[in-house]
């Protein structure tokens, strides 16, 4: 293990902590938890509030989109699928961007929290990607006339799902969790190349999927009463993603800590 500065050591402690580290009475292994500990103190008071706001906004957004968003003049009520499909797609992509940043932090700076964050982002991001594909498919059937086509946008989002699934599997595939984190971080970083491909696929190649309706530079091509539920759902999905990921990271740290305490106690009792 490289030793650039003392903070680097917690890595080993976050997986299965080596016993010699844990047995040391000097509290060295406690120091290794320094960053996760600070994370816990910061995040645990926030989690209930964040979850509550996310839940309320999700309910408001879904009810608004499902019952009250005006039907499109051409598509009719199927346009309401936009309110769940588009936010799911944004969360899926930005979730992967977050995972890629964690991978970079892990590879270069060996940040102990980055590995845990990447580990816990994976399943949540995969869920939102699956949601994007399912809702898109249910939207494509009535509008385009098909559940699925192999056009560049749809295929690149399917690849995103497989990147998430591959990351989940690879991270857990090694006996030594450190090896899993390292391998998964490389996959996470390489997979980031897919993100610009997803975004620009509808402009680079002819595709059945339409271009973006909302851009940072121009006016939105969505009428205001259809745009508002979309914005509420977008904020709600982002907050829900954040709340779930933070809660999962926090859970993982607590689980590891409990296991380490038990192991240390068992070791102490034996010697």
């Amino acid at each position: 293990m490289t030793q650039d500065y003392p903070n680097e050591a917690p890595l080993s402690a976050m997986g299965e902590p080596p016993l010699e580290v844990m047995r040391s009475k000097s509290g060295a292994w406690l120091h290794q938890f320094a960053n996760p500990g600070r994370f816990q103190r910061f995040v645990q008071p926030i989690i209930p509030w964040l979850s509550g706001v996310a839940l309320v906004l999700t309910v408001v957004g879904l009810v608004w989109g499902f019952y009250f968003a005006p039907p499109d003049w051409q598509q009719g009520v199927t346009a309401r699928i936009m309110d769940v499909h588009v936010p799911a797609a944004w969360v899926a992509m930005n979730g992967y961007a977050a995972l890629a940043i964690c991978s970079l932090l892990s590879i270069v700076w060996r940040h102990p929290l980055a590995d845990i964050a990447a580990r816990e982002i994976g399943p949540v991001g995969a869920g939102f990607t699956a949601l994007c594909l399912i809702t898109g498919s249910l939207w494509g059937r009535p509008d385009w006339g098909t559940y699925w086509v192999w056009d560049a946008r749809l295929t690149s989002v399917l690849i995103l799902l497989f990147l998430y699934l591959g990351h989940i599997a690879l991270l857990r595939a090694f006996d030594n969790p450190q090896h899993g984190y390292r391998a998964a971080a490389i996959l996470g970083l390489v997979g980031a190349i897919n993100l610009p491909i997803i975004v620009f696929s509808v402009y680079w190649w002819n595709s059945l999927h339409q271009g973006n309706s909302i851009s940072l530079t121009g006016p939105s091509k969505i009428y205001i009463t259809m745009l508002l539920p979309l914005l509420v759902c977008t904020i709600a999905f982002y907050l829900a993603f954040l709340a779930m990921v933070l809660a999962r990271i926090s859970s993982f740290i607590m689980e590891t800590k409990a296991r380490s305490l038990l192991l240390a106690a068992a070791e102490g009792g034996r010697s």
Partner: peptide, 17 residues
């Protein structure tokens, strides 16, 4: 097979009218 492609704009029927 004929698949419909739709544009990026969404508007309610009364706005179109």
């Amino acid at each position: 097979t004929v698949l419909a492609k739709h544009g990026a704009s969404y508007m309610p029927a009364d706005v179109e009218q």
